[in-house]
Amino acid sequence: MKNISMDREKISTILYPLMFGVFVIAMWQSEALHFLMGADTFTLPLPTRIFTILTENLPKVLLNTKATLMVAVGGLVLGSLLGYLLAIIASTFPKWGMGGLSVVSAFNAVPIIAIAPILNNLTKDFSRDPNIRSMLAKTLVVMITCTVSMSVNAYRGFTELKPFSEDLMHSLAANKWTIFTKLKVPNSVPYIFTALRVSVPASIISAMVSEYFAEYIIGVGRMIRENIVLAQYATAWAYIAAAFVIGITMYVLLLIFEGICMKGRRA
Protein backbone atom coordinates (compact mmCIF):
# COMPACT_ATOMS: atom_id res chain seq x y z
CA MET A 1 0.00 0.00 0.00
CA LYS A 2 2.73 2.37 1.05
CA ASN A 3 4.80 1.60 -2.05
CA ILE A 4 1.97 2.35 -4.43
CA SER A 5 1.27 5.75 -2.88
CA MET A 6 4.99 6.53 -2.99
CA ASP A 7 5.07 5.72 -6.68
CA ARG A 8 2.02 7.85 -7.29
CA GLU A 9 3.68 10.72 -5.52
CA LYS A 10 6.81 10.25 -7.59
CA ILE A 11 4.85 10.13 -10.82
CA SER A 12 2.88 13.26 -9.97
CA THR A 13 6.01 15.22 -9.05
CA ILE A 14 7.35 14.52 -12.51
CA LEU A 15 4.09 14.55 -14.42
CA TYR A 16 2.62 17.86 -13.26
CA PRO A 17 5.64 20.03 -14.08
CA LEU A 18 5.98 18.18 -17.39
CA MET A 19 2.33 18.84 -18.23
CA PHE A 20 2.79 22.48 -17.32
CA GLY A 21 5.83 22.65 -19.61
CA VAL A 22 3.93 21.10 -22.49
CA PHE A 23 1.05 23.50 -21.84
CA VAL A 24 3.36 26.55 -21.96
CA ILE A 25 5.00 25.35 -25.19
CA ALA A 26 1.57 24.74 -26.74
CA MET A 27 0.50 28.26 -25.73
CA TRP A 28 3.76 29.57 -27.17
CA GLN A 29 3.46 27.74 -30.50
CA SER A 30 -0.20 28.72 -30.91
CA GLU A 31 0.71 32.36 -30.20
CA ALA A 32 -1.67 32.50 -27.23
CA LEU A 33 1.34 33.44 -25.13
CA HIS A 34 2.14 36.31 -27.48
CA PHE A 35 -1.45 37.52 -27.14
CA LEU A 36 -1.27 37.43 -23.34
CA MET A 37 2.12 39.16 -23.15
CA GLY A 38 1.54 41.62 -25.95
CA ALA A 39 4.65 40.27 -27.72
CA ASP A 40 5.11 39.45 -31.39
CA THR A 41 6.76 36.50 -33.11
CA PHE A 42 9.80 38.64 -33.85
CA THR A 43 10.95 39.24 -30.28
CA LEU A 44 9.45 35.93 -29.12
CA PRO A 45 9.90 33.54 -32.06
CA LEU A 46 7.90 30.32 -32.24
CA PRO A 47 9.42 27.13 -30.77
CA THR A 48 9.49 25.46 -34.20
CA ARG A 49 11.59 28.31 -35.63
CA ILE A 50 13.98 28.19 -32.68
CA PHE A 51 14.29 24.43 -33.05
CA THR A 52 14.99 24.76 -36.79
CA ILE A 53 17.85 27.19 -36.12
CA LEU A 54 19.22 24.88 -33.43
CA THR A 55 19.28 21.87 -35.74
CA GLU A 56 20.63 23.82 -38.73
CA ASN A 57 23.57 25.15 -36.71
CA LEU A 58 24.16 22.18 -34.44
CA PRO A 59 27.98 22.06 -34.79
CA LYS A 60 28.33 25.76 -33.88
CA VAL A 61 25.84 25.51 -31.03
CA LEU A 62 27.66 22.47 -29.65
CA LEU A 63 31.02 24.23 -29.91
CA ASN A 64 29.71 27.16 -27.86
CA THR A 65 27.90 24.85 -25.44
CA LYS A 66 31.12 22.92 -24.86
CA ALA A 67 33.00 26.16 -24.14
CA THR A 68 30.40 27.28 -21.60
CA LEU A 69 30.19 23.83 -19.99
CA MET A 70 33.97 23.55 -19.57
CA VAL A 71 34.09 26.90 -17.78
CA ALA A 72 31.02 26.20 -15.64
CA VAL A 73 32.07 22.69 -14.60
CA GLY A 74 35.75 23.61 -14.17
CA GLY A 75 34.89 26.60 -11.99
CA LEU A 76 32.31 24.61 -10.07
CA VAL A 77 34.74 21.81 -9.23
CA LEU A 78 37.63 24.12 -8.34
CA GLY A 79 35.43 26.50 -6.37
CA SER A 80 33.69 23.74 -4.45
CA LEU A 81 36.98 22.05 -3.55
CA LEU A 82 38.46 25.34 -2.43
CA GLY A 83 35.30 26.18 -0.48
CA TYR A 84 35.38 22.80 1.27
CA LEU A 85 39.04 23.29 2.13
CA LEU A 86 38.32 26.74 3.54
CA ALA A 87 35.52 25.25 5.64
CA ILE A 88 37.90 22.62 7.02
CA ILE A 89 40.42 25.30 7.94
CA ALA A 90 37.71 27.49 9.46
CA SER A 91 36.28 24.67 11.57
CA THR A 92 39.76 23.65 12.73
CA PHE A 93 40.35 27.15 14.08
CA PRO A 94 36.87 28.04 15.35
CA LYS A 95 38.11 31.21 17.08
CA TRP A 96 38.51 33.12 13.84
CA GLY A 97 36.99 30.60 11.44
CA MET A 98 33.51 32.06 11.22
CA GLY A 99 34.85 35.59 10.99
CA GLY A 100 37.16 34.51 8.18
CA LEU A 101 34.28 32.95 6.31
CA SER A 102 32.26 36.14 6.67
CA VAL A 103 35.08 37.96 4.90
CA VAL A 104 35.03 35.28 2.18
CA SER A 105 31.28 35.68 1.76
CA ALA A 106 31.83 39.38 1.18
CA PHE A 107 33.33 38.29 -2.15
CA ASN A 108 29.93 36.95 -3.06
CA ALA A 109 28.53 40.46 -2.88
CA VAL A 110 30.90 41.70 -5.61
CA PRO A 111 28.97 41.50 -8.87
CA ILE A 112 30.26 39.25 -11.63
CA ILE A 113 30.32 42.19 -14.02
CA ALA A 114 32.90 43.83 -11.74
CA ILE A 115 35.09 40.75 -11.21
CA ALA A 116 35.12 39.54 -14.81
CA PRO A 117 36.97 42.50 -16.42
CA ILE A 118 39.47 42.59 -13.54
CA LEU A 119 40.30 38.90 -13.91
CA ASN A 120 40.55 39.42 -17.67
CA ASN A 121 43.30 41.97 -17.11
CA LEU A 122 45.08 39.90 -14.47
CA THR A 123 45.26 36.77 -16.65
CA LYS A 124 46.59 38.49 -19.78
CA ASP A 125 50.13 37.20 -19.22
CA PHE A 126 49.03 33.62 -18.63
CA SER A 127 49.09 32.48 -22.25
CA ARG A 128 49.65 33.89 -25.71
CA ASP A 129 46.55 32.06 -26.87
CA PRO A 130 43.53 34.32 -26.15
CA ASN A 131 41.23 31.29 -26.01
CA ILE A 132 43.25 29.74 -23.18
CA ARG A 133 43.71 32.90 -21.13
CA SER A 134 40.03 33.81 -21.56
CA MET A 135 39.09 30.33 -20.42
CA LEU A 136 41.20 30.80 -17.28
CA ALA A 137 39.68 34.21 -16.53
CA LYS A 138 36.14 32.88 -16.93
CA THR A 139 36.85 29.77 -14.83
CA LEU A 140 38.25 31.95 -12.04
CA VAL A 141 35.07 34.04 -12.00
CA VAL A 142 32.95 30.88 -11.67
CA MET A 143 35.33 29.55 -9.04
CA ILE A 144 34.92 32.64 -6.86
CA THR A 145 31.13 32.37 -7.12
CA CYS A 146 31.13 28.69 -6.13
CA THR A 147 33.72 28.92 -3.34
CA VAL A 148 31.53 31.01 -1.08
CA SER A 149 28.40 28.89 -1.00
CA MET A 150 30.43 25.72 -0.42
CA SER A 151 32.58 27.17 2.35
CA VAL A 152 29.65 28.60 4.32
CA ASN A 153 27.52 25.46 3.98
CA ALA A 154 30.31 22.95 4.60
CA TYR A 155 31.32 24.93 7.69
CA ARG A 156 27.81 24.42 9.03
CA GLY A 157 28.15 20.73 8.18
CA PHE A 158 31.31 20.52 10.30
CA THR A 159 29.95 22.46 13.27
CA GLU A 160 26.22 21.70 13.46
CA LEU A 161 26.60 18.15 14.74
CA LYS A 162 24.07 15.96 16.51
CA PRO A 163 23.94 17.01 20.20
CA PHE A 164 26.66 15.39 22.28
CA SER A 165 27.98 13.30 19.36
CA GLU A 166 31.35 15.03 19.53
CA ASP A 167 31.44 14.66 23.33
CA LEU A 168 30.67 10.98 22.90
CA MET A 169 33.58 10.59 20.48
CA HIS A 170 35.85 12.41 22.93
CA SER A 171 34.72 10.16 25.79
CA LEU A 172 35.57 7.16 23.62
CA ALA A 173 39.10 8.60 23.23
CA ALA A 174 38.75 9.26 19.51
CA ASN A 175 41.48 11.52 18.17
CA LYS A 176 40.86 14.64 16.09
CA TRP A 177 41.42 12.84 12.78
CA THR A 178 38.90 10.13 13.64
CA ILE A 179 36.33 12.71 14.75
CA PHE A 180 36.89 14.55 11.49
CA THR A 181 36.61 11.55 9.16
CA LYS A 182 33.99 9.54 11.06
CA LEU A 183 31.75 12.31 12.34
CA LYS A 184 32.31 15.67 10.69
CA VAL A 185 32.81 14.63 7.05
CA PRO A 186 29.73 12.35 6.93
CA ASN A 187 27.73 15.06 8.70
CA SER A 188 28.76 17.60 6.04
CA VAL A 189 27.47 15.55 3.07
CA PRO A 190 23.88 16.92 3.06
CA TYR A 191 25.33 20.42 3.42
CA ILE A 192 27.54 19.84 0.37
CA PHE A 193 24.44 19.19 -1.66
CA THR A 194 22.71 22.24 -0.22
CA ALA A 195 25.69 24.26 -1.47
CA LEU A 196 25.70 22.55 -4.86
CA ARG A 197 22.01 23.25 -5.39
CA VAL A 198 22.95 26.92 -5.25
CA SER A 199 26.33 26.61 -7.01
CA VAL A 200 25.30 24.58 -10.03
CA PRO A 201 22.85 27.16 -11.45
CA ALA A 202 25.15 29.97 -10.29
CA SER A 203 28.12 28.44 -12.10
CA ILE A 204 26.25 28.48 -15.41
CA ILE A 205 25.05 32.02 -14.93
CA SER A 206 28.51 33.33 -14.00
CA ALA A 207 30.12 31.41 -16.87
CA MET A 208 27.71 33.04 -19.32
CA VAL A 209 28.08 36.54 -17.90
CA SER A 210 31.89 36.32 -17.82
CA GLU A 211 31.81 35.40 -21.51
CA TYR A 212 30.56 38.94 -22.18
CA PHE A 213 33.90 40.34 -21.08
CA ALA A 214 36.25 37.65 -22.37
CA GLU A 215 38.85 38.51 -24.99
CA TYR A 216 38.06 35.39 -26.98
CA ILE A 217 34.55 35.37 -28.45
CA ILE A 218 32.94 32.03 -27.64
CA GLY A 219 30.21 30.59 -25.47
CA VAL A 220 26.44 30.43 -25.23
CA GLY A 221 26.15 33.65 -23.19
CA ARG A 222 28.25 35.63 -25.64
CA MET A 223 26.23 34.32 -28.58
CA ILE A 224 22.97 35.38 -26.90
CA ARG A 225 24.36 38.90 -26.50
CA GLU A 226 25.83 39.11 -30.04
CA ASN A 227 22.54 38.04 -31.59
CA ILE A 228 20.33 40.28 -29.48
CA VAL A 229 22.46 43.32 -30.34
CA LEU A 230 22.16 42.36 -34.03
CA ALA A 231 18.38 42.02 -33.50
CA GLN A 232 18.56 38.31 -34.39
CA TYR A 233 16.07 37.24 -31.75
CA ALA A 234 15.32 33.80 -33.20
CA THR A 235 19.02 32.89 -33.12
CA ALA A 236 19.40 34.41 -29.65
CA TRP A 237 16.50 32.23 -28.49
CA ALA A 238 18.21 29.18 -29.96
CA TYR A 239 21.18 29.89 -27.68
CA ILE A 240 18.84 30.59 -24.77
CA ALA A 241 17.40 27.13 -25.41
CA ALA A 242 20.94 25.71 -25.35
CA ALA A 243 21.57 27.48 -22.03
CA PHE A 244 18.33 26.00 -20.73
CA VAL A 245 19.42 22.49 -21.71
CA ILE A 246 22.79 22.98 -20.00
CA GLY A 247 21.12 24.21 -16.82
CA ILE A 248 18.47 21.48 -16.63
CA THR A 249 20.96 18.70 -17.46
CA MET A 250 23.44 19.79 -14.81
CA TYR A 251 20.70 20.16 -12.21
CA VAL A 252 19.19 16.75 -12.98
CA LEU A 253 22.65 15.16 -12.81
CA LEU A 254 23.13 16.79 -9.42
CA LEU A 255 19.78 15.43 -8.17
CA ILE A 256 20.64 11.92 -9.38
CA PHE A 257 24.06 12.12 -7.76
CA GLU A 258 22.49 13.44 -4.57
CA GLY A 259 19.97 10.57 -4.61
CA ILE A 260 22.81 8.05 -4.79
CA CYS A 261 24.92 9.69 -2.07
CA MET A 262 22.03 10.36 0.28
CA LYS A 263 20.44 6.92 -0.03
CA GLY A 264 19.25 5.82 3.39
CA ARG A 265 19.94 9.23 4.96
CA ARG A 266 16.75 11.07 4.22
CA ALA A 267 13.99 8.52 4.49
Partner: peptide, 9 residues
Protein backbone atom coordinates in the same frame (compact mmCIF):
# COMPACT_ATOMS: atom_id res chain seq x y z
CA UNK B 1 30.60 39.87 -43.48
CA UNK B 2 27.34 39.71 -41.52
CA UNK B 3 27.04 36.02 -40.70
CA UNK B 4 23.52 35.03 -39.71
CA UNK B 5 22.78 31.56 -38.37
CA UNK B 6 19.06 31.97 -38.97
CA UNK B 7 18.63 30.67 -42.55
CA UNK B 8 15.48 32.75 -43.10
CA UNK B 9 17.29 35.95 -42.11
Amino acid sequence: YIKLEDSVA
